Simulated assay, not measured.
Amino acid sequence: MIENVKYQAIYDYLVTSFATELRPGDKVPSERELCEKFGVSRMTVRQAIGDLVAEGKLERIQGKGTFVAHEKLDLQLRITSFSQEMRMRGMVPATRVLSCEERMPSASVATSLGLQENQTIYYIRRLRFADDTPMCVETTHLPAHLLPDFITPQPPEGIYSELNQRGFSPSWGEDVIESVVLDSEHSKLLEVSLGAAGLLVNRRSYAQDTPICLTQSYYRGDRYKLWVPIAQPFATVNRGARA
């Protein structure tokens, strides 16, 4: 019973610290410091910390310690750009272009965009930030024959905005979402440990019935959770094979 009371005291102390003293990314007191402060066993401290880790309030980083976790953002399934999403959340978006060129598509990309033989695509790969934190590695494929000079002299800051101006406003789309283990390249770009969890979203966007944009996005799993509204079942929409 005494240990239960002390466990609750440690738990409450840490939760209160999140609200009054510590910010996301700050290191919390060590197990030894908490043991000394509350006069409890290390097992009790580990239980309280472990429960907060399981709840997503704390995160352990091997070899460094335990830190206040960043709040996870809802990854909502709607036709908006990354920048629009971040601004709606009160965050400042930014972008670093990693690669941009006109090229021949792979067979799967050509099929997904309904391209004919020898039709090219614009390939744009970007690292997306929110409040200076890397959040997503995004690769976009667009049909070049429909969008002349789209990346000349440089890619537009907002792809969806440019599509709107050219009369190809994305009106609907389809997402395929997977959980992934981030490889060395994506881990480095997103500034997370090798093998960290991530979310992979493959999206095909349509302007009316024209497939206009194919995007592959790797999100860091420690900053996102998937939010999906549900409703009564209705007839399944099937607009062809997914990308």
Rank of each mutant, 00 (worst) to 15 (best):
G65M: 09
P148W: 04
G90H: 04
E174Q: 14
T20R: 12
D12N: 10
Q76L: 09
N202K: 13
M88T: 08
K188H: 13
V40G: 02
P153G: 07
A207G: 09
L127M: 10
E33Q: 14
G25N: 07
A144I: 06
I79K: 08
T44Q: 01
V192A: 00
C136M: 13
T133D: 07
S83Y: 01
E162S: 11
S187L: 05
D74G: 10
L189A: 02
H145A: 08
Y11K: 13
L127Y: 10
R239S: 10
E162C: 09
L214D: 03
N118F: 11
I79D: 12
K6H: 04
H141Y: 15
R103Q: 14
T210H: 07
K188G: 08
I121A: 06
S30H: 02
I2H: 09
T66S: 06
K64C: 05
Q119A: 05
A107K: 03
G90P: 03
E157M: 07
K57A: 05
Q116T: 07
R89M: 14
F129N: 07
I159L: 08
D222L: 04
M104I: 10
D26W: 04
F38T: 00
H70A: 05
G56Y: 03
T140R: 02
R42N: 08
E117T: 11
S169C: 03
L14N: 03
D131P: 05
P153S: 08
S99E: 15
E162K: 13
N164S: 09
A48K: 00
D149T: 06
E55Q: 13
R46M: 06
T215W: 01
I61K: 15
T133E: 13
R203T: 14
W227E: 13
L199V: 15
S81V: 09
M91F: 11
A197Q: 10
E33V: 05
N118A: 09
A48Y: 00
E33P: 04
R78F: 04
E138Q: 06
L142M: 03
G158S: 15
E174K: 12
Q8A: 12
R166H: 08
P156R: 03
N118P: 00
V228H: 02
S106E: 15
H186Q: 08
S187V: 04
K6M: 06
A144R: 07
C213K: 11
E71D: 12
E59V: 14
T16C: 00
E33M: 09
Y218T: 03
P29I: 06
R89K: 15
E174M: 12
I124S: 04
F82I: 11
L75Y: 15
L226I: 10
R23G: 01
L58Q: 03
N202Q: 13
Q62Y: 14
C136Q: 10
A235N: 08
W227K: 14
L113K: 10
L182A: 05
Y219D: 01
E85P: 02
P134L: 05
R60E: 09
P211Q: 05
H70S: 09
Y219F: 14
A69P: 12
E36W: 05
Y123S: 13
M91K: 14
L214P: 02
S108C: 04
A235W: 07
L98M: 13
A69R: 08
T120L: 12
L142W: 00
R96V: 14
H186F: 06
F38I: 01
P229N: 08
Y206H: 12
Y11D: 11
T210N: 06
M91D: 04
